[in-house]
Amino acid sequence: MVTATRGYRAFQAANAAVLTGVVLVTLFPFVNIVARSFSGEQEIRSGQVVLWPKGFNLTTYQKVMSDPVFWANYRNTVVYTVVATVIALVLTTCYAYVLSKRELRGRTVLVGIAVFTMFFNGGLIPNYVLVSSLGLRNTLWAIVLPNAISVFNLLVMKAFFESLPPELEEAAAVDGSGTYGTLLRIVLPLSKAVLATMLLFYAVSFWNSWFAGFLYMDRQGLFPVTVYLRNLIAGATGGTDNTATSEAALQIAANIQAVTIVLIMLPIMLVYPFIQRFFVSGVMLGAVKG
């Protein structure tokens, strides 16, 4: 252990103070938004709400939760997230497994095809033209298909498969198991941790995504809930260039925005303490090989 000089002890105290500051600054917006969501509109307008609700009421929650559009969009988000995550997980697993076979002919090319897209992509306009001409607009495929494989996740999974002992698969092959059987019965049961991590990575990113829905959905009934929130806050930025949101141009009450924000964050905040370590280990796994 360090001989705690006076200077070092002073540093420890200052360090604790700085880190406490970091924690407070990080948490403050959350506390504030929750306080606002339970406050009266008048109290928010007159700038009284900081850490604790003023004019406590639950009517804003009732109001937002009784809006059928909100629920329709919330349900859309759930459906989009589930479908997209399942498809992404299957495709990523298949490709990562192929890429993890070091002796496979053409493996370098297959890896290169994926990695190159990390550094160069088609860009907004060609993607938009493509999705439109494939007739995917106003379908959930516009959200699911263009983001079906994240190369970062792919590399994380590849690194994991490469770390598995090859003897197990060789033994399975000797027992007459084909590639599919080996993958399903030997490899995947050993990969539950990485599958869970990938599931979370994808689920969170699809849950949070809004731009694809905003870009490709024309009807309110098809929006994910993030676009619902976007239209609320677009009214609040004062002037927007999008014609689709003209009804949102009027100022939406701050407490309604606050409630919507809280309801969108809620599922993630509830599972966050339990899933956080999966994310951290996933990032590190990706960093080793990526």
């Binding site: 990080t26 917006p29 959350f30 007159s46 924000i261």
Partner: peptide
Amino acid sequence: TVSYLPHFLSIVVVAGLILQTVAVD
């Protein structure tokens, strides 16, 4: 744990939080 939290939010939520924090009220 606390400092990782904002990473998990939708950018729309982040924008909403920013707007509410810097709003006139």
